[in-house]
């Protein structure tokens, strides 16, 4: 079929209410989301590209970006390994308590970050239940960069589990059985048949966990210790600059975070459409 002219803005429909609901949607979106974000971009544009880069290259900012990104990547990788294990176990095996554990996986979505922050901090403090045990082997978690890792593993876990679970549930057992009858060991089947099928979903989950980890604030600041150059995350540095009335600095940092979030959104969309394609393919 040859497309003639431009596709119409809207395909005609018998159903009522398009104009009203679309207007309401666009107005709400513009007032609540787009106008405030535009204010940030406008303010950032007065600094210019050079001004933003100058802030980004401040040693304290660079250190915060390093620890934020480093820990977000590390946490996403921990979530990748354990999230896959959790998703596989909860989908494939039947055991008592499975449903309860499965419902619990969403806890980091539902528990306010401040509550998670003070709970994890109390847990891993040198006199806390886990902190005391770790202190005996000379490991300090709370008030060090490792505390950031713990908090980010917590908030990122459901992203990996919930992205991978549906794909595991739709895997066709016949492929695994075929692999087994052809003489592959179970481990080799998992590695060569199952993992490739799960790769797009795993990547999506890791990207979602990473994106969340980079922006996370509430659960981190209680456990991190927040020492500049060592355990100070970028979102906290924005707050610090704001409290010092350094609006330009805060804006530049926020613009950087927003640009990163935008790139991550594109990457996640790409990974998600790959997931969908692989689903259709199966």
């Amino acid at each position: 079929m040859i497309a003639v002219g431009r596709r119409p803005l809207k395909t005609p429909s018998a159903l009522p209410g398009f104009a009203a609901t679309m207007t309401a949607t666009l107005v709400a979106l513009a007032v609540v989301v787009l106008a405030p974000l535009a204010a940030l971009l406008l303010k950032a544009s007065t600094l210019g590209f050079g001004g933003v880069v100058e802030v980004a290259l401040q040693p304290r900012v660079l250190a915060s970006l390093r620890v934020t990104f480093g820990m977000a990547i590390a946490a996403a990788l921990v979530d990748l390994v354990f999230g896959l294990c959790v998703a596989w176990t909860l989908t494939r095996y039947a055991f008592p308590g499975r449903r309860l554990l499965d419902a619990m996986v969403d806890l980091p979505f539902a528990l306010p970050t401040a509550v998670a922050g003070i709970a994890l901090s109390t847990l891993y403090a040198p006199n806390g239940w886990l902190g005391a045990v770790l202190a005996k082997v000379g490991v300090k978690v709370a008030y060090t960069p490792w505390g950031i890792l713990v908090a980010l593993v917590f908030v990122g876990l459901p992203f990996v589990v919930r992205t991978v679970e549906p794909i595991i549930a739709t895997l066709e057992r016949e492929q695994e059985e075929a692999s087994a009858t052809l003489g592959a060991t179970r481990l080799s089947t998992l590695w060569r048949v199952v993992i490739p099928e799960l790769t797009p979903a795993l990547l999506t989950g890791v990207a979602l966990a990473f994106a969340r980890g980079v922006g996370e604030y509430g659960s981190v600041i209680f456990i991190a210790g927040n020492v500049p150059y060592l355990s100070e995350i970028t979102p906290l540095l924005i707050v610090v600059k704001l409290e010092e009335y350094d609006y330009a600095g805060a804006t530049a940092l926020a613009a950087i975070m927003l640009a990163i979030a935008f790139v991550m959104l594109l990457a996640i969309n790409a990974a998600q459409s790959w997931t969908r394609r692989s689903l259709v393919h199966v």
């Binding site: 949607t25 979106l29 989301v33 787009l34 106008a35 405030p36 974000l37 204010a39 940030l40 303010k43 970050t113 994106a211 980079v214 922006g215 996370e216 604030y217 509430g218 979102p235 906290l236 924005i238 707050v239 704001l242 609006y247 805060a250 804006t251 926020a254 975070m257 927003l258 979030a261 935008f262 991550m264 959104l265 969309n269």
Partner: peptide, 24 residues
């Protein structure tokens, strides 16, 4: 595009979500 814009707040750091209103 509309769906992406509606989901946008999920991708923005909470601190930035507050800051934009301070700047406005």
């Amino acid at each position: 595009l509309l769906t992406t814009l509606i989901d946008l707040p999920f991708s923005v750091s909470p601190v930035v979500s507050g800051l934009v209103f301070v700047l406005l």
